[in-house]
Design a protein around this nucleic acid. Structure first.
Length: 847
RNA sequence: GCCGAAGUGGCGGAACUGGCAGACGCGCCGGACUCAAAAUCCGGUGGGGCUCACCCCCCGUGUGGGUUCGAUUCCCACCUUCGGCACCA
């Protein structure tokens, strides 16, 4: 039973800031009016009325609900989108779901539900969350990568790559995660463990599909120059991942057998110091070398044990060097010396040629091996050029540069120069050539799991691997009853799916049952947005060329290598096939920092998750959006503070009360605004602050995305408005000024807090703020009339003087000297030097 | 080990191209309003010293040096934290 007091309280709360109410109101309007839908350029190819800007945030993986990292990501994108919209650009701002993938499948295994059903529930949920955040998305372009209308085209691209010989199948030692029961790409192995579950990956020899990304290694490096504002660290990470090294390929002939084995070396200058030769245990010639000899059995045992070793053990850098002699020798082409061939597991089959010339004097690993096997260490590069130290006495390999010794007629040359000369000589003798090697491996795309796009290939006993004809796409993912991983895809158990006829000869055949890595799905989604309902082709070239490339891409730095490199690769392939006219998908990239809580990354397993929904409910989406950007510089990691959000909540309440009071006590602004030329006192000072704030907020958003400082500038303006409010409301000119201030505050705040912006803008007597032009700072008001001049003695602040902005250097110096406080320090001393920085300070150097 | 980023009050952070260190916010302290509380509004808040009415002085941006009239900012060396790579020939 309410008592009488509640009536009064009710009427007071009527006009209290009520985010739930106004947010629902504007979300409804934006949805019904499709306020952020943008049309494609029409079929005649007429240019759109304004320049376009493609603002894109990385699409979410729909695992349950959005977390704070998503909120930060989508809010940042939204601020930019709304800001650019209001600055006259045609903003393209779509959204979708990276909906295939393991988590949904694992959840399905646990609960028995279908992954598709779980995914549908999650995408619906996330769609609602995004609406509740008020992001300005063109929802007419929404897509999910697990829809057949989408993955039909993912399969189509697989076929295109197959046609170009960029998709191929080979038997290879691959990374197997026993827990996820699938193979992984190299990029998905983190320190020998699965990126998803950290289980140690095992080597397995399997026939798998690869995309030939190595064919694009050089262009992926070269085209960094086409990228405008990518973070340096992302480029560095990709550069390291690609791992380009220049050197030489040198061919060694095996004695007695008719075999040539090439090696790759970055140190051709040390060729005269090669005292043994190594093959990776997996090298294809190992068996041929030892066949029928006394070395066959021990070598075979060694190879077998190397194959068994977990990837992590094998790659530990400080492991004891082991190996096995093959009984064979190669001839060193530069001096015709015979040197023994060993096998050792520190030589990797995947890098270079899987064989190396070993130079123990100048390579630490080879040095350790030589000491273990009692092999000669022969220095060929000497520091400073003095006579050689004996190899027997060296304690470690000498890896620096120096002067050549023990190297025939190359002696005395600087080693780098000698390297070039030796390579040239090898080249003229057809024994070697300049070569470049990359660390990058081809992209393994097969996955032995259910919830992904089926690889559109049919195996026929007569015809081999045959592509599914384009007209038969999509190859639909069949329903199955059991998703449990068994080391092969669950769809392999579905005979109806597997058994088919060969498209080439019509004979009995079976389908490929592996699905594609989900990074394939996300390597082209940004193109599909441009033409999402096209059922004739993945996208129309002209339309894609119009919207692409993405002008601003925003996402987490964890995708620095994986997604961002795959998407670049895909775009280059499409460019080469003539499907698009640009070579890089993302001109500008911004990588946001992570949000920590209680000293660690938020994660369900640690139980330190801050739920965005709860905060939207308690404070409103605008408050959450504002706080998440106010927390700190967006590119840095920041710690979530529970009480911090109260500050932005209070601030929005202050804005609400200020603007409503202004609406109540002043009239709408006249068409023709006074120029305030004669204005003085609080009116002039607040007007100046307003223009300076406008300039700062504009620069902060458009420049380096310094949202935190933009917001604090608006806070300062609101603080000053509160202090001047009573005075200004007392006269007519003041009323106009405070009304201008209120409108500017709302206009500047709007990209951050769009619901509050829309509501207050309406109350101020206007319409649709998201279409209003962005406020412009007036030059005349940017300069303050006077400023505080700092006066220093020997670099220490001793006084501050109020001086006119127009004061000359001489006037500033005179004012400084005239200061009573300053005289204390100059008395009896000599002013040796005067440094005058107009606008800032005067520094007197005294002795 | 190599490469990259970062170290500023009790906390998140600010300081443009070398020019007032600590904007803005949190927290805390005080005042106003209130019977009271919440909310709100106003003020204070780096440390130390002093003849502590708010005048003044000293110290202070991870550590130690350097350049400069002047350094959070530039240079050298080092420490710590985080991220990437790591037997890649």
């Amino acid at each position: 039973m309410p008592h009488w007091g509640s009536v009064a309280i009710m009427s007071l709360t009527m006009d209290r800031y009520n985010p739930a109410e106004i947010e629902a109101k504007w979300q409804q309007i934006w949805k019904e009016q499709e306020s952020f839908t943008v049309p494609n350029p029409d079929d005649r190819g007429e240019a759109a009325p304004a320049a376009k800007s493609y603002v894109l945030e990385m699409l979410p993986y729909p695992s349950g609900t959005l977390h704070m990292g998503h909120v930060k990501n989508y809010t940042m994108g939204d601020v930019l989108a709304r800001f650019r919209m209001r600055n006259g650009l045609t903003v393209f701002h779509p959204m979708g779901y990276d909906a295939f993938g393991l988590p949904a499948e694992n959840a399905a295994i646990k609960t028995g539900a279908h992954p598709e059903e779980l995914t549908r529930i999650n995408t619906t949920n996330i769609n609602q969350q995004l609406h509740r955040l008020g992001v300005s998305i063109d929802w007419s372009r929404e897509l999910a990568t697990c829809d057949p209308e989408y993955y039909k085209w993912t399969q189509y691209f697989f076929l295109k790559l197959f046609e170009q010989k960029l998709a191929y199948r080979k038997e290879a030692a691959v990374n197997w995660c026993p827990s996820c029961a699938t193979v992984l790409a190299n990029e998905q192995v983190i320190q020998g463990g699965c990126e998803r579950c950290s289980t140690a990956v095992e080597p397995r020899s399997l026939a798998q599909w690869f995309f030939k990304i190595t064919a694009y290694a050089e262009r992926l490096l070269q085209d960094f120059k086409l990228l405008k504002s990518w973070p340096e660290r992302v480029i560095t990470m990709q550069r390291n991942w690609i791992g380009r090294s220049e050197g030489a390929e040198v061919v060694f002939r095996v004695e007695e057998l008719d075999l040539d084995i090439p090696v790759f070396t970055t140190r051709p200058d040390t060729l005269f110091g090669a005292t043994f030769f190594l093959l990776a245990p997996e090298h294809e010639l190992v068996q041929a070398l030892v066949d029928g000899t006394e070395f066959e059995n021990p070598v075979r045992d060694y190879v077998a044990s190397a194959r068994m070793k977990p990837v992590l053990d094998r790659s530990a850098p400080d492991r004891e060097k082991t190996g096995e002699f093959t009984g064979r020798y190669v001839i060193n082409p530069v001096n015709n010396e015979r040197i023994p061939i060993y096998i050792s597991d520190y030589v990797l089959m995947e890098y270079g040629t899987g064989a190396i010339m070993a130079v123990p004097a100048h390579d630490q690993r080879d040095f350790e091996f030589a000491r273990n096997f009692d092999i000669e260490v022969r220095p060929v590069v000497a520091a400073g050029g003095q006579a050689e130290a004996g190899g027997e006495t060296m304690a470690a390999a000498f890896e620096e540069d120096g002067i050549m010794i023990n190297s025939g007629h190359f002696d005395g040359m600087p080693n780098r120069e000698a390297g070039r000369a030796i390579t040239e000589w090898l080249n003229s003798e057809h024994l070697g050539r300049v070569a470049v090697s990359y660390r990058l491996r081809d992209w393994l795309v097969s996955r032995q799991r259910y919830w992904g796009a089926p690889i559109p290939i049919i195996y026929c006993d007569n015809c081999g691997a045959v592509p599914v004809p384009e007209d038969d796409l999509p190859v639909l993912l069949p329903k199955v009853n059991d998703y449990a991983p068994k080391g092969r895809s669950p769809i392999a158990a579905n005979e109806e799916f597997v058994n088919t006829t060969c498209p080439a000869c019509g004979g009995a055949a079976s389908r490929e049952t592996d699905t594609m890595d989900t990074f394939v799905d996300s390597s082209w989604y940004f193109l599909r947005y441009t033409d999402p309902h096209n059922d004739k082709e993945p996208f129309n070239k002209r339309i894609a060329n119009y919207w692409m490339p993405v002008d601003q891409y925003i996402g987490g730095v964890e995708h620095a290598i994986l997604h961002l490199m795959y998407a670049r690769f895909f775009t280059k392939v499409l460019f080469d096939m003539g499907m698009v006219d640009f070579e890089e998908p993302f001109t500008n990239l911004f990588t946001q920092g992570m949000i920590y809580y209680k000293g660690a990354k938020m994660s369900k397993s640690k139980g330190n998750v801050v739920n965005p929904d709860e905060h939207v409910e308690r404070y409103g989406a605008d408050t959450l959006r504002l706080y998440i950007l106010f927390m700190g510089p967006p590119e840095l990691d920041v710690e979530w503070q529970d009480q911090g959000i109260d500050g932005t909540s209070r601030f929005l309440g202050r804005v609400w009360r200020l603007v409503n009071e202004v609406v109540e006590k002043t009239k709408p602004l006249p068409e023709e605004r006074p120029d305030f030329d004669g204005a003085a006192g609080p009116a002039a000072s607040l007007l100046g602050k307003t223009h300076r704030t406008t300039a700062k907020v504009t620069a902060d958003i458009s420049g380096r995305f310094r949202f935190n400082t933009a917001i604090s500038a608006i806070m300062e303006l609101v603080n000053e408005a509160y202090l001047a409010k009573e005075t200004l409301l007392a006269d007519e000119e003041g009323k106009i000024v405070i009304r201008i201030v209120a409108e500017t505050v709302v206009a500047l705040l709007d990209p951050f807090t769009p619901h509050l912006g829309a509501e207050l803008w309406q109350r101020l007597g206007h319409k649709c703020i998201w279409r209003e032009p962005w406020p412009q700072a007036d030059e005349r008001w940017l300069q303050e009339e006077t400023y505080e001049l700092v006066v220093q003695i020997n670099g220490k602040v001793r006084d501050r003087l109020q001086v006119p902005s127009s004061a000359s250097q001489e006037e500033l110096a005179a004012a400084a000297r005239a200061s009573g406080r300053i005289s204390r320090y100059t008395e009896g001393k000599q002013v040796v030097k005067e440094i005058i920085v107009p606008g800032r300070l005067v520094n007197l150097v005294v002795k």
